[in-house]
């Protein structure tokens, strides 16, 4: 375990908790894509199938449970919580995310590290995580609403990606047999999509800031 990876896991967890607390505190999820949050929950559920078969460390097991629980908590909040679900932009969050699920699964069946049930679902979760931000990106472009996408959420999401890239570079130079090319290539695509998302976030934030200037 190197510092980049640990910090990456922490910032990833914080980004999820910041979003969950923001939704729960303001009892509003306007501007948040439920489809992206559902894809994230699916990413964790399909990536941690080895939760009960392979024990790597207490840290690994605890973090997997926390990621699954917190991502499901956000989906539950947006689907079930009376007040929150009323503020959901149902008519704007229309990205056909099942196409992303189908595409990533097809790719995972073709490109994986080993043609086994667990490895195919692991590759699927890696590909899905890379594109999961798309419904949120489209929603942000349509609504321009950043009320619930706090700057902290964006910052921690970006930090998570940057730290994981540093982690892979670090492991490439320090470990003899480090080959995670599926995760690395997919991670670079994901970081590119996040950069695009941040760009639209900045535009919306700047635009909103202008709107709120005293007339």
């Amino acid at each position: 375990m190197n510092i980049f990876r640990f910090a990456g896991d922490m910032t990833h967890l914080i980004s999820i908790l910041v979003l969950l607390l923001k939704i729960y505190a303001t009892k509003s999820c306007s501007g948040i894509s439920l489809k992206t949050q559902e894809l994230y929950a699916l990413v964790f559920l399909t990536r941690y199938l080895d939760l009960f078969t392979d024990f790597i460390s207490v840290y690994n097991t605890v973090m997997k449970l926390v990621f699954i629980a917190s991502s499901l908590a956000i989906v539950w909040c947006m689907r079930m919580h009376g007040l929150v679900k009323r503020s959901y932009d149902k008519e704007l969050d229309t990205f056909r995310h099942y196409l992303l699920v189908a595409g990533c699964f097809a790719l995972a069946v073709l490109v994986n590290e080993k043609f086994t049930f667990q490895e195919i679902f692991w590759a699927f979760s890696i590909y899905l995580e890379a594109v999961a931000i798309l419904p949120q990106l489209v929603l942000l472009q349509r609504s321009g609403n950043v009320d619930n996408l706090t700057g902290q959420y964006i910052f921690f999401l970006g930090a998570y990606r940057a730290l994981y890239l540093l982690n892979w570079i670090y492991r490439y130079f320090t470990e003899v047999r480090f080959s995670r090319w599926i995760a690395c290539v997919s991670g670079i695509v994901q970081t590119g999509l996040y950069a695009d998302f941040f760009y639209y976030y900045f535009l919306s934030w700047k635009n909103n800031a202008k709107l709120q200037l005293p007339a």
Partner: peptide
């Protein structure tokens, strides 16, 4: 035992 590096990253 699985000799390859297990998926130790989250």
């Amino acid at each position: 035992a699985k000799d390859e590096v297990t998926k130790d990253e989250l």
